[in-house]
Design a protein around this nucleic acid. Structure first.
Lengths: 247, 247
DNA sequence: CGCCGGTTTGATTAAAGTCAAACGATGTGG
DNA sequence: CCACATCGTTTGACTTTAATCAAACCGGCG
């Protein structure tokens, strides 16, 4: 478990093969969408100096709630879920992350949630203390993280509205619209859900059975088509959008 | 409605009476707990220059979701609720604010939630554009806002766990513990709840009836004592704390 | 005193959860 | 190559929690 390579800030097998030791981040596919976009060459070099690129297999736990926060991470490919547990094992997924997302914005000394990969994932790993030191010298990076934190806060409030006041159908519809928005940005109505029904349930505050039944119901109503378990075609995206808003 | 005074950054009737025009923020009771604590005298002077102190009566709506975000606010006294609505009127309160809390950290051009006073409230009001300009010159202020945003994010994730996975009893217990923590910090087990049962319900994703029944149940079980509707004495704070964590 | 809003209590319903079994891909070993 | 075990998913029957509908209560105020 947790194999890793010491090459810095190069993330895919392809990138690794062509890694340029002098400028390791230049090939990073997620650079443009990550906090790294805020850094000039000097900043990128300084960051790459404290960075380790790490690939994880699917279903790998790599952050545990309550543990000392030794490292912070940038997801560069794949899907990660963040979750919190109650004492008796009830689980709430607080977010799904993908390329460009940062893990640890709100972290102080200890992690406040656990993180597990959903798919195979690559991350850039930074020692927390050194990252915080670096932040002092790159105000643009801090500004960028602030912006990302604000976006996370908006997303969290959306989720609070969903969990507090939406029905199961509205939650699933909202989830589909979020995945759609998060996708290519094109109007592509074919979604890929890399996470299991169990993950979706724990994200939406439902049970596996209710998630499954609701997908079936949407299929029967002609709102979606299901290709296997992970491919969803939105047949009536507008109707789903309305459902998501409670109309 | 929305009466206001042009005196700058002086917040209570008492403070108003003794306002020092040269140094209007010096008497502010919430300065130490607000973002203003990050400013030196020059910064405080610059901020006070774009500030209007505004008192609001209880139950006054002063921010509306979707409206252009002309102003940002700092709460200096009283309690405010932030909420979002679904089309059919279902309401979710995303947070209660009090002295020192900032309204608009995550705001871009338009407000993302509505705000209404619970009690009589005083705020410092800043034109958004001018505030953002000022931020550029006071990195310590921006750092402080970033820190506050991170704390809000942690609180939001706690609320997501609560709404997604806790029972009604656990939600009420969690709410009581949050109010307790938010209080004087002393071990004072007597809480004052300035908000209505309806507000508590809309904050916890429950109905008025369930909130009321759960309080009654806690009273019958000897966990709390109720003095009227707004005073709650925690008779067994430890048991409530355990309930809140799902133990 | 009696109205009025918010709150509490009671009876019933409905939405989602639980328990349980069947289904269907995927992967393994005979 | 196919039987079979496994794991995640779907479907079904039933239960439970909290919501809904409705009435009584209570405290403050005109």
């Amino acid at each position: 478990m947790t194999p890793f390579v010491q090459t810095q800030c190069t993330h895919t097998a392809a990138a690794l093969a062509t890694a340029d030791v002098e400028d390791p981040c230049s090939h990073c596919e997620s650079r443009a969408v990550s906090m790294c976009a805020s850094l000039d060459e000097a900043g990128l070099a300084a960051l790459s100096h404290i960075t380790t690129a790490v690939p994880y297999a699917a279903k790998t736990d790599f952050v545990s709630e309550g543990e000392p926060a030794t490292y912070l991470f940038n997801v560069t490919s794949g899907t990660v879920k963040l979750y919190r547990l109650l004492a008796d094992g009830r689980r709430q997924i607080v977010g799904f992350l993908s390329a460009g997302d940062f893990i640890g914005i709100a972290v102080d000394d200890c992690y406040l949630y656990s993180a597990e990969t959903v798919t195979p994932v690559t991350v850039c790993r930074f020692p927390r203390v050194r990252f915080k030191a670096l932040l002092e010298n790159y105000p643009a990076l801090e500004k960028r993280l602030f912006l990302m934190a604000r976006h996370e806060l908006v997303a969290a409030q959306d989720q609070i509205l969903l969990l507090g006041r939406k029905t199961a159908k509205e939650r699933i519809a909202s989830f589909l619209m979020t995945v759609k928005r998060h996708g290519t940005g094109t109007g592509d109505p074919v979604l890929v859900l890399p996470m299991s029904r169990s993950d979706i349930a724990d994200y939406l505050g439902l049970t596996i059975e209710t998630v499954s039944r609701t997908f079936t119901q949407f299929r029967q109503e002609g709102l979606i088509r299901l290709d296997g378990v992970s491919n969803v075609v939105l047949l009536q995206p507008d109707a789903l959008a309305e459902l998501a808003e409670g109309l």
